[in-house]
Design a protein around this nucleic acid. Structure first.
Lengths: 219, 219
DNA sequence: TGCTACTTGCTTGTCGTCAACAAGTAAGAT
DNA sequence: ATCTTACTTGTTGACGACAAGCAAGTAGCA
């Protein structure tokens, strides 16, 4: 259709090979996000991705090797953006405050970039299938997130803001499960989820459930 | 291979048509569960399901109409078994006790029937894709579960065991999200999840976070 | 600067597989 | 004997994957 596939003005200045492939990669990942949102992963074809990005039907396969390879790239691309939100929101906080800030960051991410949030969840879901070629990507991301949360909890215990008798790893798994589960429920039925309200409740519950004993009770 | 497809002894006594189709349905759903566990939904073919069940490559399509139709049937079949565990475990309990009993029932289900639990999660994940033909099945199941939990919370508030200032629907969504999220983490990386420990922690947190004020504090 | 050899980005042709459907056969019902 | 239902086999179109080829960019050399 247009003279330059990705819509950039490059008539005067020729591009280097690296620039060309960076542009087409970006265009195909964007096209994939659109198509996954529209049709889901199953009904999104590599040919449609290549053509929507302004290239041929064969480029997506050629560049990413396989459908799973492309989805893996999309997964990593969106994850990178999400991690920026997370870093931005949490900063140097630890303990319960870090956990609450991460919840707020997640809410902000879902609000600012609902398309990314939806696609990320859809792709994580695809990783649940055995032999999924980007399963390890999902496992790594979730493991890393659990480690981060566990560290916040340990730090909270160390500085006396979190009770000593909780298991950081267990808390981390629960916390990550909660976020992923809410995102899933939101994806399949957006109207049924009030993220803002749920987050406020969750933050209060975290403060109550993890607060170090201030004088009273047991074991 | 064998003379009777599903392995039943029927040489002497002819079967009714209803029995025949019930047997083949059952056999194909079982075969589908095996194959989904082995290869995931994408790489499970309708032909393989029919043949593993002891029939022809075409029967699965003929009976269930489409791959999504078959998965929908598998989803409903396993859900039915899970709901029996749930009913069994919860009985007439309400409030926090019902929520804790449901967690125990879930643990028991995952322990007794890990294959069912894995496949159910894999199928729920498939329902996250737009245009997924069994998405409504997942939405309905999750909605119903949320309603059940919300009712337990309302009953708990009514009989004074749960604090008045919580939103039953929000609590229900969080609770269902937690269970689904844990199941997901377990499916993608079983070693990282200690369900027993997590459930004990969760029960304690539910009791702490939802307990009606007994004299002290805020608002 | 122009010419040539090489590399990399991208396209088109092709094959095997699979879901879906249609037409046919066999088994139970009336 | 006829009809209905369970099941099988033939076929088609779509898609993922690959391979061969074309085109655009890069580097060496005069």
């Amino acid at each position: 259709m247009s003279t330059s596939p990705a819509g950039t003005a490059c008539a005067t200045q020729p591009l280097t090979q690296a620039e060309r492939s960076a542009i087409s990669d970006r265009a195909m990942i964007d096209a994939a996000i659109d198509l996954i949102l529209e049709r889901g992963t199953d009904k999104t074809t590599l040919a449609a991705i290549g053509e929507k990005a302004g290239y041929s039907r064969g480029l997506a396969t050629y560049r990413f090797g396989s459908k799973a390879g492309l989805f893996d790239a999309v997964c990593k691309s969106i994850s990178r953006r999400w991690l920026e939100y997370l870093k931005q929101g949490v900063g140097e906080k630890t303990g319960v405050e870090a956990m609450c800030a991460a919840l707020d960051a997640f809410l902000k991410f879902v609000t600012d970039a609902p398309r990314d949030a939806r696609v990320l969840q859809i792709l994580y879901c695809g990783a649940a299938s055995p032999l999924s070629e980007y399963r390890t990507t999902s496992v790594n991301i979730h493991s890393k997130q659990q480690e981060d949360v566990a560290r916040w909890v340990r730090d909270g215990i160390a500085n006396g803001t979190i009770r000593r008798d909780v298991d950081p790893k267990a808390i981390a798994a629960q916390y990550i499960a909660y976020i992923g589960g809410m995102n899933y429920l939101w994806v399949i039925n957006p109207d049924s989820i009030d993220f803002r309200r749920a987050n406020e409740d969750m933050k209060r519950q975290l403060r109550v459930a993890l607060a170090a004993d201030t004088g009273s009770s047991s074991t």
